[in-house]
């Protein structure tokens, strides 16, 4: 049971709700539960992507209707006005261009005295991660300039990288890159801490199996520190594995 009284959904329960979710027809409470599950479940994310592709073609039922001729001018005028706002320069199509948040994130990290993430390292982790598809919303959050990025410092010699990205009501995310995918019951576990002690409530413990962007049940505010460990088995309520990355908050 989570702190707000909701029980995390399992895959079967999510499967029952997924169609309504991708149709944007689910009420806010269950939608949040589904979103939280998708953040940590690649199988259900793949299922959601398939269902979204079905929803996407629903528009084909519509009979096209020519809009009034003056609408074209209004659209282009609106865009022209928007263009007065400076835009980021275009980048050549490359793997890097698929993850524009990486450059922004790197700049942000440097700006806040971060740990000097290597872009290529990010790319390697992000592109190969099971949750790579879910990185795009996070890239948009960071690119919007309204996200707060807190890097977690690696222990000496550790090459993996992690950061907490918070964007108000749009949610909070754990970015994890440059780490190998774990098999079986092993997990990378994010712990939130108060007064130096890791908390064991479900909202303060996030288990993932590899690189990617993962939505957190709640943001890091109110906690004193965060740490990522490599745990030998899931559902442990106290850390048993080594600390890989950490930061005071």
């Amino acid at each position: 049971m989570s702190e707000d009284g909701r029980t995390p959904l399992n895959c079967t329960e999510v499967s029952d709700l997924l169609s309504a979710y991708v149709l944007d027809s689910l009420e806010a409470g269950p939608a949040t539960q589904v979103r939280e599950h998708l953040a940590v479940c690649p199988d259900c994310r793949a299922e959601a992507a398939e269902l979204r592709s079905v929803v996407a073609v629903m528009a084909e039922q519509v009979t096209p209707v020519p809009p009034p001729p003056e609408l074209r001018r209004r659209v282009l005028d609106a865009v022209h006005a928007e263009r007065q706002v400076p835009a980021a320069p275009p980048t050549p199509r490359s793997r890097a261009s698929r993850f524009p948040w990486l450059g922004v994130a790197a700049a942000l990290l440097l700006a806040v005295g971060g740990v000097g993430w290597g872009l290529e390292e990010h790319l390697a982790g992000a592109a190969s991660g099971p949750a790579a598809a879910s990185i795009t919303p996070v890239e948009q959050l960071i690119a919007s300039g309204r996200a707060q990025v807190v890097p977690l410092s690696p222990v000496p010699g550790y090459t993996g990288r992690a950061a907490l990205v918070t964007a108000g009501s749009r949610g909070a995310y754990l970015l994890l890159t440059g780490v190998p995918k774990l098999s079986g019951e092993r997990s990378y576990t994010l712990w939130f801490m108060r007064t130096g002690q890791p908390l064991s409530s479900p909202r303060a413990v996030v288990e993932v199996s590899g690189p990617g962007a993962y939505r957190l049940p709640e943001g890091p505010s109110g906690y004193g520190a965060a740490a990522v460990t490599r745990e030998p088995s899931r559902s442990d309520r106290t850390p048993r594995g080594p600390v890989l990355l950490s930061s005071k908050l």
Binding site: V22, E50, V57, P137, L141, S169, R170
Partner: peptide, 27 residues
Amino acid sequence: ESRDGQLAEDLAGLCDTWQLADESLRA
């Protein structure tokens, strides 16, 4: 704001496997 977040998620999660289909065939 919440709707913007939902749209971002919808666009990011969209995987349109119908790209190969002809429009009239698809409709």
